[in-house]
């Protein structure tokens, strides 16, 4: 069942002050709904400005949405008035993009993990904590002597492993991985991802995998949500969405990707990218994609499309389908 984590109509606008009297908003997330099931990996894919990172942070409980709700196992845990109650704090953990800023530079690795362990399990003795730290560090493929080091003494890949270890230390149920390999050297990415996937598989976790890389989506996700300018334009089973995309933006994304994917991935030079994405501060009326869409017509300029099911486990928000 896909109801471990359900987000309904999430909106988040960030204010920008143009002058004392005029305030504009960056519509980072503008009505996104998504659901995540048990033992499931969902890809959240989009380019810069799509709002995927903001949505990820809202789902993790780091940012409060302006409207909309998030339900965990049927219970509402996040809405515009409050954020995650402490008993669910540990259920959802996040791994961040930049390994250089996700670890406190003034703490040794041991203490970073010890703090995390202690925040969930109070009353452990010092040796018990250290024991758990070492066990955890081995699980992510590092050696015991790594825990005595400072973050700046580790490589990017090693730091990300520590970040993974920290997220796991509180026994979460859901992981949100926000572009976790984008800042790493290409040669290191595969190792980190394979490690993460193994852990997710072994522990039976669910994961929301935020990325801009279609290749990774194809490789590791069960379902995928495509975001454009704050909205989810297509959502469903990964194979269905990537071999038979319905939304023109998804088609554009797939036709522009250069990654080598084994399988019948959609590719059509007629849907090659064109035009610049509009600014999220002043999105066009009607459908957001109208400025670049090859199928655009009058209807698209006035009405906003909503997600509807076009086949089993395949949802699209487009007026021209």
């Amino acid at each position: 069942m896909s109801d471990l984590l359900v987000a309904v109509d999430i909106r988040k606008y960030f204010p920008i002050e143009i002058s004392l009297f005029k305030k504009l908003f960056v519509r980072a997330v503008d009505g996104a709904s998504i659901n995540l099931g048990e033992r499931e990996v969902i890809g959240l894919v989009g380019e810069s400005g799509s709002g995927k990172s903001t949505l990820g942070r809202i789902l993790a409980g780091l940012i409060r949405p302006d409207s909309g709700s998030v339900y965990f196992n049927g219970e509402e845990i996040i809405n515009s008035r409050r954020t995650i109650p402490s008993k669910y704090r540990y259920a959802i953990q996040m791994i961040f993009q930049n390994p250089d800023t996700s670890l406190d530079p003034r703490m040794i690795i041991h203490d970073i993990l010890a703090d995390a362990i202690r925040s969930r399990s109070k009353g452990l003795s010092r040796s018990e904590v250290t024991e758990r730290v070492i066990k955890l560090i081995r699980q992510v493929g590092l050696r015991e002597d790594h825990v005595y080091k400072y973050p700046h003494e580790l490589s990017g890949g090693e730091k990300q492993r520590v970040a993974i270890a920290r997220a796991l230390s509180v026994d979460p149920i859901i992981l949100i991985a926000d572009e976790i390999v984008s800042a790493l050297d290409v040669s290191v990415r595969a190792q980190i991802l394979n490690l993460l996937l193994e852990i997710v598989e072994n522990r039976g976790l669910s994961m929301i995998f935020i990325t801009h890389d279609i290749g990774l989506v194809w490789s590791i996700t069960d379902r995928v949500a495509v975001m454009y300018l704050g909205k989810i334009v297509e959502f469903g089973d990964t194979e269905k969405v990537l071999t038979n995309p319905m939304h023109p933006y998804t088609k554009m994304l797939l036709s522009s990707t250069t990654s080598i994917l084994i399988g019948k991935i959609f590719k059509d030079p007629r849907f090659r990218a064109r035009g610049e994405p509009p600014s999220p501060i002043d999105p066009p009326k009607g459908c957001r994609f109208s400025t670049r869409c090859p199928l655009v017509d009058k209807e698209c300029l006035f009405n906003e499309p909503i997600l509807r099911e076009v086949e089993n486990d395949h949802f699209v928000a487009c007026l021209k389908i």
């Binding site: 993790a60 780091l62 704090r89 540990y90 961040f96 800023t101 406190d104 703090d115 925040s119 969930r120």
Partner: peptide
Amino acid sequence: EEDYIAAAKLLGERSIHIMFRHILPN
């Protein structure tokens, strides 16, 4: 704004704790 502060919040660390444990040393 740094991610490690966000991570601390995710772990349920209280504000005072974050101020003295993470911000002050930095």
